[in-house]
Design a protein around this nucleic acid. Structure first.
Lengths: 234, 234
DNA sequence: TTACTGAAAACTGTCAACAGAATACACTTC
DNA sequence: GAAGTGTATTCTGTTGACAGTTTTCAGTAA
């Protein structure tokens, strides 16, 4: 009962709708560039168009939707160039987190990262993307979390979501997994040695490396990954 | 005539209102934590509350305003801890830009930065903050611009605006100017030598150094700077 | 068949009004 | 005089409606 009261006080209809629509947009239900009908959305969520419009504006501000005057809201279409730009931003944020963490990581945190490394190594040995992806996601997220900067963490998460709209990206294949984890190990090593500059460098290069893995070399025959449920790019 | 047509097509009332309200919020007219009255704003801009609300939601998404259910929108209040967090994010973005620029800076760009360095040095000699600040702003902005990543530049600019809401920060004083420019020179030197890692390191440290200069040591007798018109933090 | 024209439908942009919550304030009580 | 209570006011949250624009599509001419 008390929890319900608090819920009503902290979550307005709009804020709930916001989260609903964010997950809807990120779910991949709409194709890139597809137009969203305000009325349909309003009917779908049983609210009027006002809140829907507000949420659309907010999501557009975050780069998930695109607004065109008098024409409506469209799913943000992220091409390869834009994705490449996003990777550079992400690299900076991740590098910042790694650098900050280098000077303050606790032993427990380092061993937790070490544990993730080992589990990812196991996944590499098994050539299992399904095992690797969630661990990889947790690894990155842990570094952001351990860095102890909520704003940095938030900025990073939002960027990852935005990058998630780039659907044409390739899934990590074969040797890519191993390379990725070697880079992970390099980051953790720098953290263990409390070498801030090295940690930053390793983290930055890791994301940039992911950027170059983003698109498959032409003619490999692999289809563009749908990446549904992968949760993160490597 | 053609220009006016284009204006109408690209700038809806809401988008114009958005910019107006952003400058209003950043102008410092409202005190941190102060509540904004939707009705007053609507009357002030001669529109109805709908567009005002949409814009408020968008600005809240960007961190300039704060929303409290059933109570309204408030000027974002940024305390010292939050400002410190923002500096870390900014450091990452700036470091990323510097690193990217190191590998692609043209001779013309490098000499432009060099020119700014010299003009800032002149300002340091004259102990003139009024001369130094705009140059410092242009220096940072140039690096972001030259890095050639629009998204990175946008993220950085938005962050600087957000940081602008932290009004209690100190203005750079006395020797601070000189220290700041020494750091600038270190960045440019790394860029000239095409040393990506060094450029990233120097850029990161420069922002972190600015963070430590953010608050005056207790008891210096300097009043907290209003920083009106300074445009940027150092 | 193709290209153009014009009306109809659909949708967005904006506004005004109503319901509910929060605040302010006068009143009562101790 | 101070604390608490109840009412009135103010403001937000949400909705429905209207005006203007864009899109669709049938009809016409080349």
């Amino acid at each position: 009962m008390k929890a319900e009261l608090e819920f009503l006080q902290n979550h307005s209809l709009t804020s709930v709708l916001r989260r609903e629509m964010e997950t809807l947009v990120l779910s991949g239900e709409f194709a890139p560039g597809e137009r969203l009908n305000e009325n349909s959305l309003a009917v779908r969520f049983s609210v009027s168009r006002g809140p829907v419009r507000e949420v659309c504006r907010a999501l557009a501000e975050r780069g998930l939707l695109e607004l065109v005057p008098n024409r409506g809201v469209f799913m943000r279409r992220i091409d390869e160039d834009q994705a490449a730009e996003l990777y550079d931003v992400r690299a900076g944020l991740f590098a910042s987190a790694a650098r900050l963490l280098a000077t303050k990581a606790t032993v427990a945190q380092l061993s937790e990262l070490e544990g993730l490394l080992e589990r990812m190594e196991e996944a590499v040995r098994m050539h299992s993307l399904d095992l690797y992806y969630p661990l990889n996601l947790e690894f990155h997220d842990s570094i952001l979390r351990f860095a102890g900067n909520a704003r940095l963490h938030k900025a990073y998460s939002e960027l990852v979501k935005e990058l998630h709209l780039f659907r044409e990206r390739a899934l990590l294949q074969g040797g890519g997994l191993e390379v990725s984890n070697v880079e992970h190990r390099r980051i953790v090593k720098a953290l263990q040695e409390r070498d801030a500059a090295a940690a930053m460098e390793a983290a930055f290069l890791h994301v940039l490396s992911g950027k170059s893995r983003m698109t498959l070399p032409a003619g490999t025959g692999y289809p563009a990954g749908q990446a549904a449920g992968s949760g993160d790019v490597v």
